[in-house]
Simulated assay, not measured.
Amino acid sequence: MIRNSGKREFIPLLEAWKKVEVRKVRERIESVQKSLGSPAYEPTVSFVKAGKTSAREISELVQKTVRTVYPKYYPQAVADFFAMFHSKDRISQDILEGKVWVLRLDGRIIGTGSLEEEHVTRVYVLPEFQGKGYGAWIMGELEKEIRKHHDRAVLDASLPACCFYEKLGYKTVSHQSMSVFDGAVLVYEIMEKRLH
């Protein structure tokens, strides 16, 4: 209600309220402060391993991104394949295995990435936050994790992401394709980057 009112006179009340609340509520209050243009507001950004309660939110993020971006590059059947491949059940299992990370902005998950040894998977940023450096931030953090045990990072790049990964220093090592539903073909690149 305060956000919708647009009234800046609530900012001091929000600041006082924030001091007595738990983290999740504090993050939500900060989001409202930002929308009101609070000068004291500084966004809180964190990159952490996903908890099991995050599976639904991560799944929604991935589904929204796939449904928004992929149809511009692939036939609908390929977008459907990606949506099915990154199901909530699969994400939940990967969270239980400690493979999934999330990027939070003011408590909201706006991006995600997963690791399996040196293999980077499921890197997605909500469409409204793309082009702002969050994807590069996720990749930088995942590469730090990989560097602890490996000297290279590997990933399968979809068509919408190839140029993004090239800018981060990844090189294509092979072109791949596979048939999915209704005879549609999924084309992607295997890319790698040496981590020094």
Rank of each mutant, 00 (worst) to 15 (best):
V78Y: 02
I29M: 05
H150A: 10
S59I: 01
E60H: 11
A161K: 00
E116S: 13
A77W: 01
Y170G: 03
Q63Y: 10
L126T: 02
V102L: 08
S31Q: 14
M191A: 11
T68V: 08
E128T: 11
A79H: 01
Y170S: 06
K64N: 11
M178H: 09
I110V: 12
K88L: 12
K99F: 05
T172Q: 13
L36Y: 13
A157E: 03
K18A: 15
G37Y: 12
E21I: 04
L159E: 14
Y70P: 00
K171D: 08
M84T: 12
D151I: 06
Q93P: 00
V185R: 06
I58F: 02
E128C: 07
K193F: 04
E27N: 08
I29F: 04
W17K: 10
E117L: 10
Y73M: 11
K64I: 04
E9I: 08
G98R: 06
A55T: 09
C163P: 00
V102G: 05
I109Y: 07
E15G: 07
V20R: 13
S114I: 02
E192A: 08
V123C: 04
L14Y: 12
N4W: 11
G51A: 14
T172E: 15
R28V: 08
G140W: 03
F47Q: 08
A161W: 01
A161N: 03
K34P: 02
V102R: 00
K19Q: 15
T112C: 15
D182A: 13
K88E: 15
R147F: 03
T65I: 03
S46D: 14
D151F: 09
L155F: 04
R28D: 10
S92G: 09
G133D: 10
V66D: 01
Y74H: 02
G169A: 09
